[in-house]
Design a protein around this nucleic acid. Structure first.
Lengths: 149, 149
DNA sequence: TTTCTGTTTGGAATTGTTCTAAACTATTGA
DNA sequence: TCAATAGTTTAGAACAATTCCAAACAGAAA
């Protein structure tokens, strides 16, 4: 069975396929291709425009509307997590585990903070009529000016 | 001097005027009026559209562009703090002290969490080339369904 | 196959925000 | 008090990100 050695090469959509199945989403050509771009490269933070650009660059024909649809469906299915850090644009994070973010304000870039490197000492009581859905911590960074005299 | 008893009534713009002065912004009619709406009512979280609506409702004639300009100027001067919690709209917080936020996802509403009710146990080291500009904690809430059978 | 329902698509529409150039106004100094 | 000037306001155009739409398309099931 040495031909099975590289599972990734033989079944490039296997991971995404399983994800789609678990989310109850049909494995269409577009969703499989976008899923591959999103999930086969480790943890990523992308905007819709970015992902659309990447697909385009690889010759995958997908409309921007579909990219938006897909990102939103993946998010509500728990396959992605939407991160809001800057006004007027959304980032989608392929890491759905509990973790937080660094945000470089200079170039509007995101980076994961490993879950164990940050912790909340005291979570305030949620108001009586509500429950905590999620806690987001965003550490905003500014690059230090290395051109100082 | 009993006529000075209600300083607020006699000099309704005093607070805002001082703020503008300290920020180096000219005390124009529009800025004074918007400042009054923002600062005379305690801690508030407003969007540009909201504030414009309030001004309009009080017969204050200000263009939406000016509301945006003003909110942005106030923010960069430290008179306000911009809070990004939902894609596609910005909130401005009149509380510029160190504190964090509850965000009710159901009605897209913000509420301050007093600074002492939440604390970060461990702030991760900022990457070598950057420094922490600010840390935002957003506790996202969902209203519990009180209409359950 | 055929049918059915979910999906994709291009383009129009919407929303929130910024830009622009002209009109206006607070400030300063005669 | 007035004029000059520099900062401000304004309406409307422009823009960017996202959603909506109705028609064409493509999986799934029979």
């Amino acid at each position: 069975m040495d031909k099975n050695s590289d599972l990734q090469r033989q079944r490039p959509f296997a991971g995404t396929l399983a994800r789609l199945k678990s989310a109850g989403l049909r494995p269409t050509r577009q969703r499989l291709a976008l899923g591959k771009l999103l999930f086969d490269a480790g943890d990523r933070h992308v905007t819709a425009e970015q992902l659309h650009g990447e697909a385009d660059a690889q010759g995958i024909k997908v409309s921007l509307a579909t990219v938006y649809n897909t990102l939103n469906q993946f998010s509500t299915s728990g396959l992605l997590r939407e991160v809001v850090v800057a006004p007027g644009r959304s980032y989608f994070d392929t890491n759905v585990d509990d973790h937080h973010h660094f945000f470089y304000e200079d170039d509007a870039t995101l980076q994961d903070i490993p879950g164990d490197q940050i912790a909340l000492a005291a979570l305030p009581d949620a108001p009586a009529d509500a429950e905590v859905a999620r806690v987001d911590v965003i550490v905003r960074l500014r690059r230090t000016d290395e051109n100082r005299s």
